[in-house]
Design a protein around this nucleic acid. Structure first.
Lengths: 187, 187
DNA sequence: CAGTACTTTCAAGAATCTTTGAAAACATCC
DNA sequence: GGATGTTTTCAAAGATTCTTGAAAGTACTG
């Protein structure tokens, strides 16, 4: 496990607020890495979120003690997911970055990105797998039928989730918060 | 990337059905590993799901070409998540394992396991972080207030998801399928 | 357009995570 | 209880993924 992300600052400057931010960064990164998000990507995001202001690459490097290259790739990843946006500051050549502050929106963007990158390709692959099994196998055995039924049940459930998520977390969807409220109102 | 999980079988035995199973295993493992599930765990689960019958460790080893030790650890993980169950076969000392076949139930069990292992500890940590920040910092500045507000908004949203998921995917909950139907009926 | 400030790229190295396999533990049978 | 079959453990090896840092690229500025 990596060191705590305290850096640049002298020990005397580390007050409760700074310490609390570090704790948040550590825990968020921990969660991220168990979900397959590189630790440093989660750390940079956590930093931008918890600072709540635009920061430049240098500041991030110093604060988290990671290399320039790593910060660059990490920020690009976060920008691709849409949870961090580039901003410019007048009279300064540097690029600044800030994180989405609305948590429901943040979660929607994360889910949306993963759905695109992972769920959609899987659905396409399952489609192909099903077609191939049907054509390849001349025999129309009970075994084949059961196999196709299994593929179908998986495919159908995932497609249903896919479609539903388009409606709630997709661009211009109703929003994750609405989904949560709807479900809560049924209990 | 690893080889396709064809094994033990001679080339001549590989018919369309077998090939389709392999394809499914490969894609499921692919998805799993991008979500932080070890490839071989996802492979073993995919095999048991798509075969739809109880299998013993030896058969799994041969089919996926993985070591005995790996199969043992993997099956234990899957059993902990509740998506694979041990069974005994009369007149045979071996343990057999079979995968949950209902997809909605399967997805519920996966989400439930991850919530327990990852979301709940994060929530507890955020709680502590918030308390600590409040106590540590003597000053009652606007900055501190904004920081606490950020922690709170994150904590509240995640807790809301946590509670909601208890109701739908928890033991004896209404089921993920019910949640999906409810949401669908609103569109 | 040359100089400067900043960013991106990517091959090599570092760190982390996964798998192996053989020994120990366990369980069942006679 | 001893023999036999089966599972688990875990240190070391192997594989994968992540990070670095220096060089190349880009874009502003005077």
């Amino acid at each position: 496990m990596k060191e705590t992300p305290i850096a640049g600052a002298l020990a005397s400057e580390i007050d409760g607020l700074e310490h609390s931010r570090d704790t948040f960064i550590t825990h968020w990164a921990e969660m991220g890495s168990s979900w397959g998000v590189p630790r440093s990507v989660a750390e940079v995001h956590a930093l931008l979120f918890i600072e709540g202001r635009a920061m430049c690459a240098d500041e991030i490097m110093d604060r988290l003690q990671v290399s320039r290259g790593s910060v660059s790739m990490t920020l690009r990843t976060l920008a691709d997911w849409g949870i961090v946006t580039k901003t410019r500051q007048r009279g300064d050549r540097k690029e600044y970055f800030e994180a989405e502050q609305d948590v429901w929106n943040l979660l929607s963007l994360i889910v949306r990105a993963r759905k695109r990158r992972e769920l959609e390709p899987l659905l396409a692959a399952l489609d192909d797998t099903r077609q191939a099994a049907n054509i390849d196998s001349t025999a129309d055995t009970a075994e084949l039928k059961a196999h196709l039924a299994r593929l179908d049940s998986m495919h159908d459930a995932l497609r249903r989730l896919d479609r539903l998520s388009d409606q709630f977390i997709g661009r211009g969807g109703k929003g994750l918060d609405v989904a949560v409220r709807l479900l809560s109102s049924f209990l």
